[in-house]
Amino acid sequence: MTVLHPSEKLTRLPDDIVWLDLIDPTRVEDSYMEQLLQISIPTRDDLKDIEPSSRLYIEQDSVYMTASLVWKADSKQPELTDVAFILTGNRLVTVRYADPRSFSLFIAALGRVPTDVRNGKTLLSHLLETIADRTAEILEMTIARIDRLSSDIFRDRDRRRPPKFLEGKLADIAENHRLIGKVRDSLGSLSRVLTFLQNTPMLHTDEDAEKLCKTVARDVATLSEHAGFVAGNISFLLDASLGLINVEQNAIIKIFSIASVVFLPPTLVASIYGMNFRAMPELEWSFGYPMALLAMVVSAIVPFFFFRWKGWL
């Protein structure tokens, strides 16, 4: 792989350079590559344009495609980064302002592509295949996380768990939901790129690249369906967690409600004998005080055992 620097003021690219990977290029570097390749290089602002006509188009026999790829999938803040793929002549030009792992994986496996078939169309097909494989890996990683979350939430429910245990799991569910949302957006973007690429006359001149693009398109469609299934599981897990939180909160409220009912009869007895009426015979009894205490205890015990008998406790 050849690395070009702005200081190397070439007037013509060697024929054996079939892939130019522009990573976070400056405006000076963009201008230099435009003069070298005689094409326009999209800027960072151009890549952010969401209009289909600005992301997929043909200009001066060069095919321009922009896809959104998942970046920082292993972190708590996954992002989407826009990457431009340009087929011009026999070369592939990629413009990116981030470093998705799929590119490093593709570079590491670049030796598997035979030298005699290396051209822009073939490299783009293999690169898109690597991106799809990396997306599948992210989906598998997310599924494993969801399985662990499901086990933590539903397993050992009878054991005492720390307060706000489920509230903490909601944050983990939200992280995975965010990641799956990014993956689905990326797969939708890749699907549009592959559909556009398969309809370009340039691809039809390379049978191997065309077949590989069709295979990758089927893989992306399958991954999109699978991502939708995973998103449904995450939604179920979120609803189940919120339901369990409501159950725990209702159990606490039930305890307070039963406690208030249990202590209501003793409070009534104490209120009656706290009155200041003169004609209350019990006030003159020598055993009136212990009788009042006994009445309060009995009036508290009877509702308690009644609730136990009904299964409310």
Rank of each mutant, 00 (worst) to 15 (best):
K76Q: 06
E175G: 08
T66R: 01
G120E: 04
A300V: 03
I255C: 02
S62Q: 11
A295C: 12
A109H: 14
T94W: 01
L128G: 00
E207Y: 13
A251E: 12
V216F: 06
A98W: 04
D82E: 09
F287G: 11
I146Q: 05
F277S: 08
P163A: 14
P163H: 10
D21M: 06
G181S: 10
G288S: 06
K254Q: 12
V117A: 07
E207W: 11
P6M: 02
Y289S: 09
N119F: 05
Q77T: 10
G188Y: 00
P290R: 04
S235F: 10
E207D: 11
K72N: 12
K211D: 11
K72P: 01
K310T: 03
G168Y: 04
G181R: 05
T142A: 07
D206R: 07
I58Q: 15
I234L: 07
F307W: 04
A295T: 01
E129Y: 09
F106G: 00
R96L: 00
G181C: 07
R160S: 14
D49Q: 02
A144G: 02
V247L: 12
F85T: 01
Q198E: 14
V269P: 05
E34K: 10
K182S: 09
P14I: 13
M202L: 13
D24T: 08
F306H: 05
S299W: 08
S186I: 04
H5Y: 10
I258P: 03
D208P: 07
I258R: 04
R112A: 13
I58Y: 09
L283M: 14
N276A: 10
A292R: 03
L139G: 02
N233E: 11
V262P: 04
